[in-house]
């Protein structure tokens, strides 16, 4: 009976397709990840702020260009209510630590991973950035190499409206 249940469960899992990407208006499922400094990062802990959630990887050239920009935004705009969270899609945490030792950033970074990414609609290419409003809803989604000037304008607009 147990074997049958496992088989049925496996069939159900294998029949499932890829995660459906979150879109504007969706409420982002709450999550807690431990960042590379050992601190818990809980999305709902930032309710009331504008959250910039960035999926990135050390091997992704455009991601490496975005990180220092997001780091600057975190410093310059946190007093106005911005919180940047980075989620690395690297396979190897050692690579991420090595990279951040060389290029430190001013916001928390945790590991993503396939299963976790699926809970947030999947990450099938990086960079992928969401802007999440004070109520935890997606207000903007940037897949691929983003126009950072436009993104900055949107961030400032949303901070002004907050």
């Amino acid at each position: 009976m147990r074997a049958l249940l496992i088989l049925v469960a496996a069939l159900v899992v294998s029949a499932g397709g890829p995660a459906v990407a979150m879109k504007v208006g969706d409420v982002v499922p709450d999550f807690t990840r431990t960042d590379l400094a050992g601190k818990d990062v809980r999305l709902s802990g930032y309710r009331g702020k504008l959250v910039l959630l960035n999926f990135w990887a050390t091997w992704c050239p455009p991601c490496r260009e975005e990180l220092p920009v997001f780091s600057r935004w975190q410093k310059d705009l946190q007093a106005r209510g911005l919180q940047v969270i980075g989620l690395s899609m690297d396979d190897d945490v050692a690579e991420v630590k090595k990279f951040l030792a060389q290029y430190p950033v001013s916001f928390p970074i945790a590991m993503g991973g396939a299963k976790f990414a699926e809970q947030l609609g999947g990450v099938l290419g990086v960079p992928l950035t969401y802007l999440i409003d004070a109520q935890g809803r997606v207000v903007a989604r940037y897949q691929g190499e983003a126009d950072l000037k436009k993104m900055e304008a949107k961030v400032k607009e949303l901070l002004g409206a907050k």
Binding site: P18, G122, L124, G125, Q143, G144
Partner: peptide
């Protein structure tokens, strides 16, 4: 051109995932 999500999955092409 963009990524596997945009250029394959979102187009509705056959897709599998790891067990």
């Amino acid at each position: 051109k963009e990524n596997f999500g945009t250029d394959w999955v979102d187009k509705g092409y056959p897709t599998a995932k790891a067990q």
